[in-house]
Design a binder for these strands. Sequence first.
DNA 1: CTGAAAGCGCTAACAA
DNA 2: TTGTTAGCGCTTTCAG
Lengths: 337, 337
Amino acid sequence: MTDTLNRTTLRDVARKAGVSLGTASKALNKSGTLRAETREKVLVAARELGFRPNDLAQALHRGQSYTVGLISNDSFGRFTMPIMEGLERVLHEEGIALFMCNATDDPAREQRHIDQLLGKRVDGLVFTGRRADRRAAPGVALGGVPALYVFAQSDAPGAACLLPDDEGGARLAVAHLLNTGRKRLAHVSGPEDFEAVRLRRAGFEAALAEVHMPVHPDMILHGAWSEAWGRAAARDLLNRAEPPDAIFAGNDQIARGILDTLHDRGLSVPGEIAVIGFDNWTIMAEAARPALTSIDMNLDALGEEAGRRIVRMIRGDTVSGITRLPCTLVRRASTTQ
Amino acid sequence: MTDTLNRTTLRDVARKAGVSLGTASKALNKSGTLRAETREKVLVAARELGFRPNDLAQALHRGQSYTVGLISNDSFGRFTMPIMEGLERVLHEEGIALFMCNATDDPAREQRHIDQLLGKRVDGLVFTGRRADRRAAPGVALGGVPALYVFAQSDAPGAACLLPDDEGGARLAVAHLLNTGRKRLAHVSGPEDFEAVRLRRAGFEAALAEVHMPVHPDMILHGAWSEAWGRAAARDLLNRAEPPDAIFAGNDQIARGILDTLHDRGLSVPGEIAVIGFDNWTIMAEAARPALTSIDMNLDALGEEAGRRIVRMIRGDTVSGITRLPCTLVRRASTTQ
DNA sequence: CTGAAAGCGCTAACAA
DNA sequence: TTGTTAGCGCTTTCAG
């Protein structure tokens, strides 16, 4: 309980146990061969002194710091959070600590962060984005430190990227809507310059084509990632001669806007029309009226997989190329009774 | 660009520059007195080799790691995020890197994290909570490492805590409503076992009392932190003989629920009734109909102040006791035209 | 003005 | 089975 607690050195332990430095080390690391009695003596001394090995010294010695740096361009936002959580969980189990840096799309800031992290001799680097679009490789060389992109992509050839399967997610949504007997599907999504938007649209179209259903281009609308856009798009669709009986929204905010318009128009959901979102932003989806069915990108699992991969990379395995992890459907009241 | 880039050692630089190790060190640290020519020689060699000092070695030597650990109990949630951002920004400017750990209210997990961080010889520890309630001091001794609680409180006597001024925030809300001519104020808030709820209620009551307005206990409602509760509470209030002409919600989700009910009832906001939220959760507040006026806890500023304080503590200053930082009012359409 | 050497705390190879 | 010692890469006296 004294403040010398974590300043105790291995030498102190050895002295107290009446053994040499090397012996104390062997006892604590269970290496070499020691008499059980000696080992016990050391362990007791260590416990009594509240000894905690200095990782910095260990790291310096073995040339490995047991740390990984995470550089986010999402300002620690909604998408980075669950990824961080999964990542941190896995790394912690491996005894690896995580440095968090926020670059917020500022390349200079990112470079300073990378520099700092390399100085700290991180064993690996994980880059996170706010959107899964391609981005330029960092301007600084990474000095051979393994790098992994999660919910982000890199220009660098052979870069290891981990992404959600947006197209597959869209297919899930369409399949679910068709399963519940819907015939006229619309898709209201975000800005077309997002790769995720293009992939989700592709999934929407492909899933319809596969069951030989017509894809009406005018039933696919692009706008902002906002509730306001959802409300406006829904008004547009409802004014058509043949309004849809199901709407697949590009994200949950848009879906909520859509639900608000349907509510205002007095349409019953899911009776007359079904709505499905994307992101499964729980707090949004559950508060919707009715609660919103949505596609979950499983960002937490993405983070966990990122942890496993960066660990493998640190161990020397080569991991490269783009991997997409499956999305899942989360059923709520907006599509089925 | 080679992977020896960050493996270059100071000795390599010295060798290349044709000077001794000590001289190279002096040149790079601008310490001691060197001939300009010698220094330049070293700097050139360092640049050519892409030398980057090993922080681990430096840290080991000076007994300071230039790292701080952040332990969150909010699962990196909505409240921790902005705090982290502010904190990281300030620390980065000081050349300090931030370890992120997620304890999610699991004491055993928290202990393991603290242990790991102390092993890494962090210079300071910051604890973050999901709610600003009191919590037990960590079970492990912190070994004299400075600790700071942000958006969280500690049992430990003299613990340094940094919190938003909930009561002041509530006063701001009431003052604003009164300024816009409202007469019958209601308060719909979260569960009473939250200290924040009690403080906001206290602020609500005190602000009314100060201008000699009656405080009707039946105009103060407690429930869940949800839109559903907001909707229900609003229905209740509107069915009264004397419904309120302004509602101060305990958070933005509740406020949104209230707005939904008002919208359904066809009441004009802010014409007939005003609504103000708490948290200023932008994505929620801006999407509301009409956009929601709200109280901002300035968590980002809280994080920055936390950064400044932990730095002072690391430098040896004593910082202790509870400090509350002011909230601010963010005007939107739900209270004024 | 520059070089040599000790030491931060630990591990591992080598002696005893 | 245990002790001694040489580093890991850097900073900082203290000599030269």
